[in-house]
Every structure is written in C-alpha cells, then in structure tokens.
Computed example of a mutant assay.
Amino acid sequence: MRFRHTDAIWSDHPHLAVGALHATGVSRAADVGPRVAEYTARALARLADAPEGRFPEVLAWRRAFARMGLKPTQYRCASESLLRRLRKEGTLPRIHPVVDLCNAVSVAYAVPVAVLDADRVTGPLLEVRHARGDEEYTTFGGGTEHPAPGEVTYADSAGRAHARRWTNRQSGHSAVGDHTSRVFVVVEAVHDGGTDTVAKALRTIARELTEHWRVTPATALLTSSAREFTFSDEPLSGTRAAP
C-alpha cells in the first residue's frame, strides 16, 4: 500500500507536515486508561490557560479550512473538535484502545490524528487529494455521501472516501473496531513548527503501540521532497524506527 498527498495539496499548503504509521497486531486487549489520562491532563492544563481556538495549531487549520472555502467554526479539524469536547466535558469518549490513545495524543499535541482499519482500505494507493465528486463516503450511521468536487479527502483505489473535508470527519467504513488487527495512522499539521510537533506525536503513538501491544510499527515523516509512504501487510517488512 502506498500513501501520499498529491502535488496540489502540498502546493496549496506549504507548511504541511505529515507523519504516517502502520502496525499489525492490535486488539481491544489493552488497558490504556492511565496513558489516556496522562495525555488528556496535559491538554486540560493547556486549556486552562487559553481555549483551543487560540492555539496556533488550531488557528492554522482554521486558516486552511477558510482557504478551502469552508467556515472554520462550522467545520472544525478533528483535534479542535476533540479539544472543544474535552474543555466542555472534561473527558473524551471511549471507543477502542487504539483510538482512545490516538485521540488523547491528538489533544495533547493539538493536531489531527486519523486512525484507519488498514484492512478496510483498498490498495494499492491511498491518496489525500481533491475529490472528483463520485467517491463514496460511508457515515458512522451507515449512510452514503459523496464529497463535493474539489473537497479534500482520503481516497483509496476503489474510489472510497475515508474522510470528509480532509481532517474534519473520518469514515465509518474504515473505523477501528472489534475486528481490527491492522491500523494505519496519519498525523497532520499546517502550523509553523508543525514538523517537530508531528514527529513528537508520531513517536509517542509508536511507543504506546509498542508498549501496549508488543508490535513494531513502521513509521515515516513525509515532506515536500519525500512525499510517499509504502507499507506492507507483513508487520516487520519495511519497518523503520519512529523519528
């Protein structure tokens, strides 16, 4: 499987920073509660000083959404939505240990983290690109939508859209659940200094997966000069240490 952002995405968002991770061997059999609490406490401490709408990481995504013609306070990036919920409710929803960890890391670093069931993505290519309008997106309620032409989405080789409005909403089709054994994780940022933030978040996720599931993730930082991540179904094939 190859993962990349198109040239047009890199051109439109020159500050884009991307981290990608693939791991095999995850399940629900892990107690991630203490680590989730640690990362959410870090986010709550930051929220005590300022609301998420003033975070540089969030403001950069709002500007990116505005450039895409979206109302930033109507369509929020995933990390802003999680931070907003955490500020209001003091906790995050429990979904699946891998998702719970990634959501907690997302609020700790204030950047979107996408977690997909890799077996629900059709290869050989998963691409972040502008939609044609004929891609099929499955809602969490089981309905079908079509991204608007020009909307940024995660599109696989079968024409499935695994996200709406880039980092706004993931697809129910590739959501992690009881059946999941392989995950593909993407961390994205568009603020100044985003490369360092993404590297830290990616390293944190890789470490947590290793500690809780004894897996060896393959990871990569993608840049404008190294834009593609290739991973195998084999858990140790092409494995690289987290940056």
Score class of each variant (00 low, 15 high):
A201F: 11
G133E: 06
V113F: 01
V176G: 06
F229P: 04
A118V: 04
E89W: 12
H15K: 15
G142C: 06
R203C: 13
R62W: 01
W166N: 11
T204I: 00
F184L: 13
S225T: 15
S181Q: 09
F229G: 08
V32Y: 13
D178Q: 13
L221F: 07
Q170V: 02
L209A: 13
E211C: 12
T144V: 15
S224N: 03
V26G: 10
A189L: 08
E127Y: 00
T138L: 01
A108S: 14
L70P: 01
V152I: 15
S79T: 02
T180S: 14
L86V: 09
K200W: 04
R4M: 09
T239Q: 11
S171W: 08
T195H: 14
T138C: 04
V26T: 10
V183A: 03
L101N: 07
T122Y: 05
E89V: 09
R42N: 00
L44C: 06
L222A: 10
T73V: 02
R120I: 00
A201G: 12
K71I: 01
S225D: 13
E151R: 11
I9G: 04
R164Q: 07
Y109S: 09
H5K: 05
T91C: 02
A29R: 15
R85P: 00
E57Y: 00
A201V: 12
G177T: 15
H179V: 11
A189R: 03
L222G: 04
R84N: 04
L83T: 04
A8I: 02
V99G: 02
W61C: 00
A189V: 07
A163M: 05
A218R: 11
R46D: 03
A114C: 04
G238D: 11
R164V: 00
R84C: 08
R214P: 01
V183C: 04
R62K: 05
Y39R: 14
A48F: 03
